[in-house]
Simulated scan of single mutants.
Amino acid sequence: MPRTRLDTARIRAAQQVIDPVFLDTPLYSCEALAAELGCGVRIKLETANPVRSFKGRGTEWVTSRLAGAVVCASAGNLGQALAWSGRRRGLRVTVVASHLASTYKLDRIRALGATLELVDGDFEAARERAVNISRRDGIRLLEDSLDIETCEGAATIGLELADRADEFDTVLLALGGGALATGVGHVLKELAPGVEVICVQPLGAPALTRSWHERRVVTTDSTDTIADGVAGRFPIPDVLDDLLLVADDAVLVREVSIIAGMRMLLDHAGLVAEPSAALGIAAILENRERFAGRRVATVVCGSNVAMDAYRRWTSEGRVEQRP
């Protein structure tokens, strides 16, 4: 049987190294959401930690094996996590981001002590600049989802889910670069194969979902979504290969559904979720019949969002290009 790049033994080793502040996050049934959505809803909450996203699991594993300096490109969450883990271990961290990125996320990267460099263009332009810095300075380049440690760190969420897999039959995962989906998917297929793994991506940033359906890398010229954390245009071939082995389905959702999902998480679960974290709820909203009566778990993967934009989205429903 074909194998992914991931290894469960290494994932368990990562779990022993990652700061416990990122581990054993709550998994609980939300009855209020279940009543609204017509299916059982279990929330895996990955926001109650110092960087307010799941990314710290991966950066903890990466930085535990590094010395000196590291550079990454980030839409915001990875940069914060790398800055936090790097500061903890005395590493020099450089983060490259688009000047269009969330001001809130950029401010947090600076506050955590990383050197921040802004570039014109989108995330792909930031990635190219990070590659150049790595080559120029001879330092480690961390590439989310391509570097297996980021997937292994995210996969520790899968270990925690697998321990309670009798509580749900479906898991909904945000799909961006693919570390979360491939990591959690790998563990569930090995330890809880009866659980359906469904990946969710915005209609305005569909590259990896299209690639999964066509079984080949599909790129896009641009993205148009408020879910900046999953707005990539160039899927990584190795990540697609893994995703084809572990995902049962990949679906696209509209911006209006993402905003509705954010509102529902606030109104019925008391959670502030960034757009990427509401993708699972958006998927249920767009296909209630598919999920009716099922027991669904969704990973609320981040809460780093500018509050002025968040208030507009959740109160007025106004969609803007960027937070």
Rank of each mutant, 00 (worst) to 15 (best):
R5T: 13
L6C: 07
D7N: 15
A9H: 13
V17N: 09
D19K: 03
P20W: 00
P20L: 00
T25Y: 10
T25R: 14
T25C: 11
P26N: 11
L27G: 12
C30Y: 05
C30S: 14
A35M: 08
G38L: 04
G40P: 00
R42K: 12
L45R: 12
E46C: 09
E46K: 07
A48P: 06
P50F: 02
P50N: 08
K55W: 05
E60F: 02
E60K: 02
W61H: 13
T63Q: 04
A67M: 13
A75H: 02
N77T: 00
L78H: 12
G79L: 14
A83H: 08
R88K: 15
G90S: 10
R92H: 09
V93H: 00
V93P: 01
V93M: 00
T103C: 09
Y104M: 11
K105N: 05
I109C: 11
A111T: 09
L112E: 02
L112D: 02
G113M: 03
E117V: 13
E124S: 03
E124K: 07
A125V: 10
R127M: 13
R129G: 03
S134F: 11
R136C: 08
D137T: 00
D137M: 09
G138L: 03
E143S: 10
D144M: 10
L146W: 15
D147R: 03
E149M: 12
T150Y: 12
C151H: 13
E152Q: 11
G158A: 01
L159D: 15
E160Y: 04
L161M: 13
A162W: 07
A162L: 08
E167A: 11
D169K: 02
D169I: 04
V171R: 06
L172D: 05
L172Y: 05
L173A: 02
L175G: 10
L175A: 10
G176S: 10
G176Y: 08
L180Y: 03
V184Q: 03
G185Y: 00
L188T: 04
K189Y: 00
A192N: 05
E196H: 15
I198K: 09
L203M: 14
L208S: 06
R210C: 10
R216V: 08
T219V: 13
S222H: 06
A227P: 12
A227L: 04
V230N: 04
A231G: 08
P237C: 01
D241Q: 12
V246P: 06
V246R: 03
A247E: 03
D249R: 14
D249F: 15
V251A: 07
S257Y: 02
I259N: 01
H268W: 09
A269L: 06
A269I: 11
L271A: 07
A278W: 04
L279G: 14
G280A: 07
G280T: 06
A282P: 02
I284A: 05
E289K: 13
A292G: 06
R295V: 05
V300M: 06
G302M: 05
M307T: 14
A309P: 11
R311S: 07
R312V: 15
R312I: 12
W313C: 10
E316K: 06
Q321G: 06
Q321R: 15
